[in-house]
Each structure stands twice: as structure tokens, then as C-alpha cells.
């Protein structure tokens, strides 16, 4: 290094700010201990790291459509294409029952939440491995990664909504009054369920990279048993109860009731779906928190 370079360095080296003269009591004190036997969720810590959550969500949204030609238009094209195929194959050829709603609206109202669920599930399941450099080099509550992964596809969901609104206009199926306000609750159930399974599968994926093979199979079968291309209430009752174990059945029938004015869900069935979703969330969270201390060692 030449003398000139060295002088330049000395000139530009940043002068650190003096240490804030805070009273000693204000310094946060943290105790590092072995992993606790019983996992728990530290809500205060999550709140402290809320900006990191925002940063990860923001990064993923930014990166998602960078260097794509059509960009965010894909968020409309993908569900529109899937719905078109369903309408032609199941509506026209197979003549699936659609209840009191026009078949295309019925299908789109099923495809959009299902699309959200599929993205949320696959991204949250891969989140730890996809963020390997972060997991091994810096600390933050790992819960933020699956959480960010289920928040990012909400953007696609919102962008896809105009497709549904257009169809609602075309077929004149408008929401019937106040039940519309319950729509976000059904989306929340999809989020919670995806997050629960994502918690579980992402922890498993740290150790066993079999997860990427399982997810596509699961996601291919799921629309068939969630009522995406048919109205659940047209199915014989005993089968309805079996379908109701699947939280996505509740999400889709509830969503159709809220925004399309489709028949009211059978509440005990909806309750079962919601209970399964919440149970999956709690189990997933427990497994995730229990294996979290070993992530950096095993990944």
C-alpha cells in the first residue's frame, strides 16, 4: 500500500460515536443458558425484533419479481390460468355441482386462497435452508423466518383479488352484507395452518432434505380434498365431515360464504377445520421451538 493510499484511509476512516452515557441499569442484560427443556415463545423478544421481520418480508417481496419481465402481473396470471383450466375441465366437461353460485366465481374464490396456501406452505417449509447464511451467522428469533414466509404471499393474494372481483361483477354474485367482514378471518386460518405446517416441515428440513419431495405431492392432492373445484355442501354429508378435518375446506367454504354469498358453512364442520388448523399451528410451533437450538449445528 502506498503512502498516499494510507493517508486517504486515515482521512476517511469513520470516527465512532462515543458510547452513549446511559445509566448502567439501562444496559440490557442477557443470560445465555443451555436450551430449556420446555420450549416457549418469547413474545417480548419477537416484538424487539419486529424490524428484522419487516426487513425479511420486504426483501422477499422485492426479490420475488426482480428480473421477471411481467413482474407482479404473474400474481394475476397464475391463479387466472389455473382457474381457467378448472372451469373448462371440471365445470364444462365433468359438470361439477356449483350450488347457487356461478361456477367460474366459485372456482376463482377457491383457487385464490388455495394459491396463497400453497405458496405460504412451500416457502415457509424451505425458509431455514433458504436462509442458511443467516441461520449460521447471525442471531434473531428463528420464528421470524417462517412468519415472514407466510406473510409474503399475502401480497400475491391481494394482487389476485381483482380477478375475483371482475368475475363477481360478470356474474353478479356480490357479497351479502356483513358476513364480508369475516373474510379476513378465513384467510387468517389459512395463514395459521400454513405457518403450523411450515414450522414443522422447516425444522424437519434442517435435518432431512426429503421435505422438498413431499410438498409437491401434498399440494397436488390438497385442492381435490378442499373443495376448490366443487361446492362442499353438494357432497354427501358423511363425506363432508371427512373433508372438514382439512382446515382448507373451512377456509374455502367460509371465504365463498363471506365474499360470494354462497350457502353458510355448517358451523360444527367449520369449527372442526379451525380446531385442526390451530392444533397444527401449536404442534408446529412447539416442534420448531424445541429444535431451534440445534438449527445452526445441524443445518
Amino acid at each position: 500500500m502506498t503512502q498516499i493510499e494510507e493517508e486517504r484511509l486515515q482521512r476517511t476512516a469513520p470516527v465512532p460515536r462515543p458510547l452513549e452515557s446511559r445509566p448502567r441499569g439501562d444496559r440490557p442484560t442477557f443470560v445465555i443458558r443451555p436450551a430449556p427443556r420446555w420450549p416457549h415463545l418469547d413474545i417480548r423478544e419477537l416484538w424487539h425484533y419486529r424490524e428484522v421481520l419487516g426487513t425479511i418480508v420486504w426483501r422477499d417481496i422485492k426479490v420475488r419479481y426482480k428480473q421477471t419481465f411481467l413482474g407482479v402481473v404473474w400474481a394475476i396470471l397464475v391463479p387466472a390460468f389455473t382457474a381457467t383450466v378448472y372451469v373448462v375441465v371440471f365445470g364444462k366437461f365433468a359438470k361439477f355441482p356449483s350450488g347457487n353460485v356461478a361456477y367460474p366465481s366459485l372456482v376463482v374464490a377457491g383457487v385464490i386462497p388455495m394459491q396463497y396456501f400453497a405458496s405460504a406452505l412451500s416457502q415457509s417449509s424451505m425458509c431455514l435452508v433458504a436462509n442458511l447464511p443467516l441461520v449460521t451467522k447471525v442471531y434473531f428469533p428463528r420464528v421470524l423466518l417462517p412468519l415472514a414466509a407466510v406473510l409474503v404471499p399475502v401480497v400475491d393474494f391481494l394482487v389476485g383479488l381483482p380477478v375475483l372481483i371482475t368475475l363477481m361483477g360478470l356474474y353478479g354474485t356480490w357479497p351479502k352484507g356483513v358476513q364480508l367482514v369475516s373474510a379476513p378471518a378465513f384467510l387468517a386460518l389459512a395463514l395459521v395452518t400454513a405457518l403450523g405446517i411450515g414450522f414443522f416441515l422447516s425444522s424437519v428440513n434442517v435435518r432431512y432434505r426429503d421435505v422438498p419431495y413431499i410438498i409437491p405431492v401434498f399440494l397436488q392432492v390438497l385442492p381435490l380434498v378442499s373443495g376448490v373445484m366443487y361446492a362442499v355442501e353438494e357432497v354427501p354429508t358423511k363425506w363432508q365431515w371427512i373433508l372438514a378435518v382439512n382446515p382448507m375446506t373451512t377456509v374455502i367454504s367460509g371465504w365463498r360464504w363471506a365474499v360470494l354469498g354462497a350457502p353458510e358453512p355448517i358451523w360444527p364442520q367449520a369449527g372442526l377445520g379451525a380446531a385442526v388448523g390451530i392444533a397444527l399451528f401449536l404442534i408446529g410451533l412447539t416442534v420448531f421451538r424445541a429444535s431451534e437450538p440445534r438449527f445452526a449445528d445441524t443445518i
Partner: peptide, 25 residues
């Protein structure tokens, strides 16, 4: 805190910044 100890503990007083790698993330 990237990994947990098997035994023992450490008490840390103050805001911690770590630099295990340049350009993390």
C-alpha cells in the same frame, strides 16, 4: 446466541453486535 451451550451460562450486559462474516444476508 447462534447456538446454545450444552452446559454453563454467560451473562452479557449491554447491546451486542456480532460480526462473524462480512456481508451477512
Amino acid at each position: 446466541r447462534i447456538t446454545t451451550p450444552t452446559k454453563g451460562r454467560a451473562i452479557i450486559r449491554g447491546r451486542v453486535g456480532s460480526l462473524l462474516e462480512v456481508g451477512t444476508g
